[in-house]
Design a binder for these strands. Structure first.
Lengths: 202, 202, 202, 202
DNA sequence: GATGAATGAGGATTCATTCAT
DNA sequence: TATGAATGAATCCTCATTCAT
């Protein structure tokens, strides 16, 4: 007769599942992840997974997308609306943002995409469209704005915003692979910013 | 005309198998690679694989090691024996070497390690010992030598040789994930070298 | 008319599987038994076996134990509680019990243990603890009680209850190996009892 | 140029192989025995086995037969030619013979037959014809001779020579299964002989 | 005769997916 | 909705047997 202590809302189910799935994929990778384990961590039965998702792959895609969503938007907004001079913005909010990435779920997603991307080109496209191209465009655009404003000179960096994020990328890989070996990733990114600014400042 | 059913090439077999396995792992990743497929590509029977390797994992390790072996040695020798001034060496042979990496099998190995590294820590150690630590030590040592010679000033770069290879790393990931999207990886690395040299030159 | 594809009989499954497995092991022995065959005889899929047992070996152990369980208990109780004079008990209930053994599943278990015992010492221990040591202790104790009561004289038989069961053992082996050759196993055991009683009677 | 230290005679090969095979079968049983292992212990190549035997089963049969051959003959001769009174013969040579059996290769053969007999009825027949029926006939005949001579009275033992060997049988099984648990098998057989003689003596 | 590399059918085990309840 | 028992295709690995040398 006792009512369940609380009844989970069915609206929350997909998210509960993707969260559980994320943690399993993070630990095992896509191929070695077991849906049994996902169900257990989500506190639901295996069958229920199939009520919300049709296949393991679909769960995987939902996981990737759920992490990606709303991730860069904050940065993009900041880029668009900042009042700071370019150099300060780069040294401040942009660097901070980048420094936060390697420890965030995004690093996991990157790993999953590197592992599985070949077999899920649509996911890669999705990630490209929603994260990479936007992020790079924002950084590139920001630099070009600095050039237009006379803060920066024209250099190859304008067309290669990847230079800005390269140490962030390396930091993510480093953390994934070489956890045991210490690396001051914050300083790595900071120094890159220093170099870039020294290089492009008018 | 029929190919002989038996070839009896004990010496060549391991390498034939490793090469076939490399191509399968490259396409599918470790978990999704089928030993059937490896055997077919190697032109041998499934059972033969087990004459030379005990498990799939052992084949995997042999693949990784076969690619890694003798990979950095050429660079390391060059670093030790070069007569060039530091700057020229960095701009010349070092840059060339790095530019060659993203298109080489090493990029595949990196992908496999990123995917499977967590479950094969000994492989990661092996890669670290034989490639990463040596390579970074060489670059770091080279920069310090430049400092000692008065060619370079003291900067954070001496302790962060990762800055030199960060664009190489990004280029590898880029090629793996975003094949469709063009990126002038050579220029990326070249520009990084420019920036670094500009930054550290005395 | 079609049998339902799913039966959902969680409670019955282990026993159904064990019974099917017993029949296959009985026919083929452990090593040559195919789990395919076990599944077919149990009327379930191969995969289901692994829902209840983790390995073939585990099924094997379950089979052995299921036969052994509650096997000697009836005899042991009778030994403890009988009101009969020793001689009558031996000639009556004990002989009857032994005569029933060679045709019972216990004979199959003995065969499996002889075949596989070396590789399953824990099973042998289990069988020893639950059947052999108890049974021999009961018989030995019973004889000693007869000695204490003055019914029997002191002989080597008290310390060698194996003498009582030796013909039972031989009968089991005989039935396993020489099915074609007739042997009056009942009379064999009866005569042994006669001899023993004649030998030990006070 | 050096001649091999000694060249094994091809005539010895089959026996070398069956000896190696015997040791492997003894350790592993038929199904788990690997021909690789047999070849290694015989010091020959795997292929050579097939020069002398067509299948694993054929090797198995050769092993069984090689152990059986000439095994009972000594006893049978003794039975036929002994000058000893029946009782002395039974207490002496016959008991000695039986006591030696559980530690001899015959015990191994028995185990192999118990395990594999169902699938090799011809082997069982062979064993029956050459060992069991002869042995039992000899013992039975010997007892009957004693009866004819007035040494023994007529009892069921005459028709059940299995009674004589039952403790030997049990001893073999005991050693196979319960190595850890001590049992004075010699005394077991001796006591049985005592009982039988007491029972049948005129 | 002798070798041992090579074969390939066969078996235990896994796990995404289904479906009766 | 929700469950979890049940399915079976797929995969790694083994090993008796073959055959070029």
């Amino acid at each position: 007769m006792a009512a369940p202590r609380y009844r989970r809302r069915k609206e929350d189910r997909p998210q509960e599942i993707t969260e559980a799935a994320f943690s399993v994929f993070a630990e095992k990778g896509y191929a070695s992840a077991r849906l049994d384990e996902v169900a257990r961590r989500a506190g639901v039965s295996k069958g229920l997974l199939y009520l919300y998702f049709n296949t393991k792959e679909e769960i995987f895609k939902a996981v990737i997308k759920s992490v990606v969503i709303r991730r860069v938007d904050a940065l993009l907004d900041a880029v668009d609306t900042t009042e700071l001079p370019s150099e300060e913005f780069i040294r401040g909010p942009l660097l901070k943002f980048m420094q936060g990435v390697p420890g965030s779920p995004v690093a996991i997603v990157i790993r999953l995409l590197i592992s599985e991307g070949q077999r899920h080109p649509d996911l890669v496209d999705y990630y490209w469209d929603n994260v990479v191209s936007k992020g790079l465009a924002a950084i590139g655009g920001f630099i070009e704005r600095g050039v237009a404003r006379g803060e920066f000179r024209e250099t190859a960096v304008s067309e290669l915003p990847q230079l800005v994020i390269a140490p962030m990328m390396l930091s993510m890989i480093w953390r994934i692979l070489f956890t045991k070996r210490s690396l001051d990733t914050d300083k790595l990114m900071e120094t890159q910013i220093e170099m870039i600014l020294a290089y492009i400042k008018a």
